[in-house]
């Protein structure tokens, strides 16, 4: 289509109408949204929530989500660490966390296996990367402890239970992401 051979009148509208209506974001924005809306009381039961705990948990979820996306971008999905035993995919990890309680056999066994591989790979990463991972994991664990304490006072709180579920999932995803790096030492050369 050129200026010398123009298209019919009104074709701009046709082109505009044919444009795609949707574009998925490059990352999942929900954890960040959840963190923000969880810090605000609204709806039934919300006034019972101990908000400082919920806020801390929300921050941890946001940190973990951003971190997982960052590190995940450094390893191809096919780079599965076969030598250390089966490592679940993210969807598998989410299935386990989503449908099994933390005391569930599946969850504990998979988590233990994953944690071993994670620890091995962590030691091979660049010190600065390792420090960041450990710092973020500490944040997640501290938030987890805060939520557990808050739940002891308000065990039926839907917000706290939802946050707890998110924390488990983020911790699991973080383990899985590090464990799935096939050659952690090679990550040291990347920027």
């Amino acid at each position: 289509m050129t200026a010398e051979n123009p298209s019919p009148v009104g074709s701009l509208d046709a082109h505009l109408a044919a444009l795609p209506a949707e574009a998925e974001p490059s990352r999942d924005l929900w954890p960040g949204i959840l963190a923000e809306i969880s810090a605000e009381p609204r709806g039934q039961g919300a006034s019972r929530v101990r908000w400082p705990f919920a806020l801390a948990a929300g921050v941890a979820v946001a940190i973990a989500a951003g971190y997982v996306g960052w590190l995940g971008g450094r390893s191809a999905p096919t780079e599965v660490a076969a030598a250390s035993g089966p490592v679940p995919s993210r969807s598998e990890a989410q299935r386990l966390v989503g449908f099994a309680a933390p005391s569930g056999t599946d969850y504990l066994a998979t988590r233990a296996s994953l944690e071993r591989t994670y620890s091995e790979h962590l030691q091979m990463l660049e010190p600065r990367t390792r420090a960041r991972i450990e710092r973020d994991l500490d944040t997640i664990r501290n938030a987890n402890a805060d939520i557990q304490r808050a739940l002891a006072a308000d065990p039926q709180s839907p917000v706290l239970n939802r946050l707890l579920e998110s924390i488990w999932q983020q911790e699991f995803n973080l383990y899985a992401t590090v464990a799935r790096i096939k050659d952690p030492a090679a990550q040291r050369t990347r920027t």
């Binding site: 209506a21 949707e22 574009a23 929900w30 809306i37 969880s38 609204r42």
Partner: peptide, 21 residues
């Protein structure tokens, strides 16, 4: 609207593509 975050997540999943565009 009553405070159900799971319901709101459903709305997010359904509309995020259009809002992002």
């Amino acid at each position: 609207a009553r405070g159900d975050r799971r319901a709101f997540e459903d709305l997010y999943r359904r509309h995020v593509g259009r809002v992002n565009r």
